Computed example of a mutant assay.
Amino acid sequence: MHAEKGRLYGVSLGPGDPGLVTLNALRVLEEADSVWFPATPGQGGGRSSIALDILRSCGIDERKCRGIELSMSSDRSHAEQAYARSWLLMQEELLEQKSVAVVTVGDAGMYSTVTPILEHAAAAGRPYRIVAGVPAFLAAGAAAGLPLAAHAERLTILARVGSVDEIDRVLDREKGTVVVMKLSTVRDQLVPWLEKRRPDFFYAEKIGMPGEFITSRVEELCARTIPYFSLLVCSRYGRVASSVEGKL
């Protein structure tokens, strides 16, 4: 895949390890006239961006990189305004027949920061392409040495659940493996729930990033803050914890 002039691209960066950026994604990023990345504003006027860190590791020219500042808040109004402002600037570039790439950590088709921009593009009748990538839960399964599903087994994915009761309901209903992404929404409920339910599970955070952590032991989670980039894998097949403990 090559970056075409006047085309918008939603580009997946994978979970954090630059080695998991696909060849297609890297080619588009190198050829694009501008690369837009999500960033979180920090105190004192600075900002942080895992996406920008990955772009730097891939050798992408930082002079063509533009930040979309998104606060980590359940109030989406500020994010929607930031996306709208950024889209107007991207649209100007596209009208000038420039190629524009918007990146996301993980895969652009799953709970992605790219989605609002693609929605703006669709509403404006502007064509775009999505460059697929490696989602964090698959990278976590690989890091743990665990196939998440086999044969006719079911795999259910949840994200940003409002309560551990939602996880309970799915585990009670589905005879398979359940992945829960972005666990920070239930960080205060997670350990008590694991202690009570005792599911076959493993927990992972910051997969492919500095500070990567994987465990299947509840006691190792008691002092952890449970960040945004975290996930839980629970299974009814009884192989998760034993597999993880054998690899760590």
Rank of each mutant, 00 (worst) to 15 (best):
A122W: 05
V240T: 09
D53R: 15
R217I: 00
W193K: 10
S99L: 04
Q189H: 07
Y111C: 01
S86E: 01
L146V: 14
Y203C: 15
A123E: 10
A132L: 13
E69H: 09
L52N: 06
E96F: 04
I157G: 01
R56D: 06
P18V: 02
V179R: 04
S48D: 13
D61T: 02
E166S: 11
A51C: 07
L52S: 07
G109F: 03
G133K: 07
L29C: 07
S216N: 13
R160Q: 15
R66L: 12
G211W: 06
S77V: 14
L95S: 10
I130G: 00
S243P: 00
V178I: 09
F202K: 15
M110R: 03
P127R: 05
Q43R: 14
A144Y: 04
F202P: 11
W36P: 05
A223H: 09
E212H: 03
V191I: 14
S49E: 05
C222W: 02
E80N: 12
G106H: 03
L231T: 07
P38K: 02
S74A: 13
K64L: 03
P116V: 01
R85S: 10
R63A: 09
L20M: 15
A123F: 00
E30V: 14
A149T: 13
V178C: 10
V161R: 03
A32Q: 04
A140R: 09
E96K: 15
V240K: 01
D168A: 03
Q43A: 13
S12Y: 03
C222Q: 14
A84R: 12
G59Y: 09
V218D: 01
F213R: 15
Y9S: 10
G238W: 00
P147R: 15
G238L: 04
P210A: 08
V102F: 10
S243A: 11
A51L: 08
L232R: 05
L171A: 07
E153C: 07
S99C: 05
I50Q: 06
M90C: 09
C222K: 13
H120S: 06
A241W: 00
A142C: 12
C222V: 13
A3Y: 10
L194F: 06
I54C: 13
E220N: 08
R85H: 12
C234H: 00
R85A: 15
S230K: 01
S77Q: 12
E96M: 15
Q91P: 00
S235H: 01
D165Q: 15
G162V: 03
P147V: 13
E30A: 14
V161M: 04
E245D: 12
L89V: 01
W36F: 11
L146P: 03
A142N: 08
A136P: 04
E119I: 14
A82Y: 06
